[in-house]
Design a protein around this nucleic acid. Structure first.
Lengths: 166, 166
DNA sequence: TTTGTTGCAAACATTTTGCAGTGTA
DNA sequence: TACACTGCAAAATGTTTGCAACAAA
């Protein structure tokens, strides 16, 4: 049931995207910042800023939402964390953050909007082929798969009449 | 230079996603609604709500932004129009709408955030293979390519030091 | 000591919604 | 005529920012 989950806790100390990545760039490693990085890298739930905020506040109750936003943006700008906007349609309202900065594919549940990382390898030759075909300069790609996750299938039965109300 | 553009004006009268699609679903075909549909289907710029609003207002000056939002949401809910959230990172702030409801791939410019449709065919067998591999129920996929569009390459020279400030 | 970072609150941008009036079917 | 739809304005939501106090280097 969970064999499609790519990783639980990525080892970012070894890939150069841990806390020391910040020091290296001349940024200060403060308490809130270290904790925010830790939280966003310790999950593959592609959390929202709000989710990170709640999680961080458990260990650092005085942290502010503004600080979480500021640090998430900084981590994105530094290439340590990636920012996604969820699936098309419903669930698209808020930014989601991916502590797994390596290129990988996604599966998005059209019912609950949850995004799962996929184990399938990325094929870089596709970029070259598409570049030749289109004349575009392509750096990378990501395949976004859509469907219903096991939980939603179980919860709502085999078929579903979607009525996409927010 | 433009050979990668998929279509200029899709023919939605023939694919069942024109105005009659609304009538068929028991929805009223009002002036503002017809115009909003027409505008969003007449471009492949993946416009924002604001862009649609400005365009619609040229022909219907009394239309309100609220009506544009309400109708875009309705068209999305009916599956006539698709809602995207732009690229990850900068440019991700606002919803974009795609009047081309058929499945196709995208190229997103990491500099200017513009999204282009791609001509490359979609391979449905990939869904089956990935479904087998992961145990997930997959309905479709879309490949999101990233790189720099010709305009941005020309404007900023061959290389670029990105500093992702918003 | 210097200056980047924080908490707080206010500002901002985008999108949704309540309401009374309007126009489509 | 009925009621889905509209314009308008206010509200809601998500995110950014100015500022004075704070703390990492």
């Amino acid at each position: 049931m969970l064999l499609f989950v790519m990783r639980i806790i990525p080892n970012n100390s070894s890939n150069g995207l841990g806390p020391e990545a910040l020091r290296r760039r001349g940024l200060r490693l403060t308490g809130p910042r270290r904790l925010i990085l830790e939280v966003v890298q310790s999950t593959d739930l592609h959390p929202t800023a709000e989710w990170v905020y709640r999680k961080v506040r458990r260990r650092l109750p005085r942290v502010s939402l503004g600080t979480v936003y500021r640090n998430l943006r900084l981590l994105v700008d530094e290439g340590i964390v990636e920012e996604l906007r969820g699936s098309p349609g419903r669930h698209a309202g808020k930014a989601r953050f991916d502590g797994n900065a390596s290129v990988h594919h996604h599966f998005t549940c059209s019912d609950c909007g949850r995004i799962h990382d996929l184990t399938a390898p990325v094929d870089p030759s596709l970029d070259r082929r598409m570049a030749v075909r289109t004349g575009l300069s392509i750096s990378h790609h990501r395949i976004e798969f859509y469907g219903r996750c096991p939980a939603c299938q179980a919860r709502q039965g085999p078929r579903r009449r979607a009525r996409n109300r927010r």
